[in-house]
């Protein structure tokens, strides 16, 4: 480990609230250790701002272990920064160099309005899942867990879809601000498992309908979402969603329960 310090120029989007206009503000970050995580670098900047009596930069974060999906940030043109397969909280300053200018923007999407500075409202994701992202079973009264054998390959594939952390990097990366990688991962988890079959066709319709109602864009298969997804959700999920949706709409009798 070779810890060194560096000085950086940050160009950060500042916006007081949802209604006011935002702008870029340039802040010098001095003496930043290469061992810091990106968010720790912002902590240091915030401590300095606070000491000067200036409003610290608001950004979403929580677990700082790369799993809660709360951190975001569009760093130098890429969601979660230049390293692939990692969240912003797991990005370290050694990925940058002394004297570099770092431009930090919030996720940009009509469905993700900016709340303040770099924090956006991602409740659209919650509403999509509320529309049908579940298996309708009540607590209790379920069969023994081993009553339902699931082939390991299927279980593993479902896990690959279920691993989505709901951060929204797919939307941020997509030039169309499309949420299809997220929505399809959720639909896929249940489509792949036997537990999800009873509501498979109504679920696909309900979740796609809500996704469209939230104002996300369409998929043009640029694969930017897949490239930027911190947990490696694959594009094949989108194909599966398309398949299930068309199947439901054109051939199945199940409809959406509102």
């Amino acid at each position: 480990m070779s810890e060194t310090t560096m000085n950086l120029t940050l160009k950060i989007w500042r916006q007081k609230n949802q209604n006011e206009k935002g702008r870029f503000v340039t802040i010098e970050a001095k003496g930043i250790s290469t061992d810091m995580s990106f968010l720790e670098m912002l902590d240091v900047v915030n401590e300095d701002l606070t000491r000067k009596g200036e409003d610290p930069i608001y950004f979403d974060h929580d677990c700082r272990e790369g799993i809660c999906g709360m951190c975001s940030l569009y760093i130098n043109g890429q969601p979660h920064g230049p390293k692939h397969g990692t969240t912003t909280c797991q990005l370290h300053m050694r990925s940058f160099h002394d004297g570099q200018t770092i431009v930090i923007e919030p996720w940009r999407a009509a469905a993700f309005p900016v709340l303040k500075d770099l924090a956006v409202d991602r409740t659209a994701f919650d509403r999509i899942q509320q529309a049908g992202g579940y298996v309708s079973v009540n607590t209790g009264g379920v069969p023994d867990a081993n009553c339902l054998p699931i082939p390991k390959v299927k279980a593993d594939e479902a896990f690959e879809s279920a691993t989505c952390i709901g951060c929204g990097a797919c939307v941020a990366a997509c030039k169309n601000a499309s949420a299809m990688l997220f929505v399809s991962a959720k639909i896929s988890q249940y489509a792949l498992l036997p537990q999800g079959q009873a509501e498979r066709w109504s679920r696909a319709q309900a979740m796609v309908e809500q996704m469209d109602a939230e104002g996300f864009g369409a998929c043009t298969v640029t694969k930017a979402c897949e490239a930027e997804c911190p947990v490696g959700i694959k594009l094949t999920n989108i194909a599966r969603m398309n398949r299930d949706y068309f199947n439901a709409k054109f051939f199945k009798e199940e409809t959406v329960h509102h």
Binding site: G77, E105, K175, F216
Partner: peptide
């Protein structure tokens, strides 16, 4: 799709 991102990014990937 343009409507889905009314404010573009400053930095392009």
């Amino acid at each position: 799709n343009k409507k889905a991102r009314p404010i573009p990014y400053d930095q392009k990937p």
